[in-house]
């Protein structure tokens, strides 16, 4: 009895210490974000003071409009939204249809074809980017939405994710629908898709964030300022306003905010997506 009590006490302390350590580790996770916000509100020269200022003496809200108009960030945001939006729609649509065929329909060579799909995941992105760039260059699509979007419309990861999910839907539901007179499309559209909303949301959220963060492809597929996306624009801004850190941080904060909003709104789907891919 005494021993059990003692152990329980020891365990509690140890757990508290460990929890404290984790909280301590969490501090460096947020400090850069706080510092980013703080710097973005500083005076240009205050930012360069030594020792470094941690908080702005006078909050400079004007940094935001000034930074965001120095380069057409509105245009960048619009481009990124169009880019990410189209890719989300495209990836969800193509992944759902393909995954349905792989998960639910029987046809010769299905498993071999699926393996062939998966093999694309093995190929480093840069191997594909060079020929893809030459393709869209040959089509005259460089620096256009068509070039930017077209290559990203299918995601093998998405097909894999949705296939895994579709396989968990009871087959009897589809059979029931079949007897009820539904064709394959009606089964897909009226039974399978409504039941897969969480998986579709997961894919959509990941596709959106991935494209928003995509840097290399927009960097090579677009050239003009009119076609720029946020990430590339931010990098360019860094080159142009090298010394003005408050401006840079203001732009950086603006670039991060939409992503964090999506993250907070759809945190559930994020966790699910990471867990699903990690465990399968």
């Amino acid at each position: 009895m005494r021993r059990a009590l003692g152990r329980g006490w020891g365990r509690g302390v140890r757990a508290k210490v460990a929890g404290g350590a984790v909280l301590l580790l969490a501090i460096p996770m947020v400090v850069p974000f706080l510092y980013m916000v703080s710097t973005s509100l500083m005076d240009e020269f205050e930012a360069l003071r030594s020792p470094p200022a941690l908080l702005p003496a006078h909050v400079q809200w004007g940094n935001y409009p000034a930074a965001l108009t120095a380069l057409p960030f509105g245009r960048f945001f619009l481009n990124t939204a169009i880019f990410a939006g189209c890719v989300v729609v495209g990836q969800v649509a193509t992944s759902a249809t393909a995954a349905y065929a792989f998960a639910r329909l029987r046809f010769p060579g299905r498993d071999r074809l699926f393996l062939a799909y998966l093999s694309v995941l093995m190929v480093p992105a840069i191997v594909l980017l060079i020929p893809r760039f030459l393709f869209i260059n040959a089509l005259g699509w460089v620096d256009s939405y068509a070039g930017l979007i077209s290559t990203e419309l299918v995601s093998v990861w998405g097909i894999f994710l949705l296939r895994q999910f579709f396989q968990t839907i009871p087959r009897d539901l589809e059979d029931a629908a079949r007897l009820d007179g539904a064709g394959e499309w009606a089964i897909f559209w009226r039974v399978v898709l409504p039941l897969s909303r969480p998986a579709l949301a997961t894919l959509a959220v990941f596709a959106f964030v991935d494209q928003w963060k995509n840097f290399l492809w927009p960097l090579i597929a677009t050239r003009s300022t009119e076609m720029g996306v946020v990430e590339v624009g931010l990098a360019a801004f860094h080159g142009l306003y090298y010394a003005n850190w408050p401006y840079q941080m203001a732009a950086a904060v603006t670039a991060v905010v939409p992503l964090l909003l999506v993250f907070f709104a759809a945190q559930r789907y994020f966790m699910r997506g990471i867990q699903l891919t990690g465990l399968k």
Binding site: M29, F33, M36, V230, L234, H238, A252, V253, L259, F263
Partner: peptide
């Protein structure tokens, strides 16, 4: 903790690179 630790992962890559360069 999950939320806090995931912040960098879901943030803009360039923005993170910038703030680290600043730091």
């Amino acid at each position: 903790a999950r939320t806090v630790f995931l912040l960098p992962y879901v943030s803009s890559v360039v923005a993170i690179a910038l703030v680290w360069q600043w730091m």
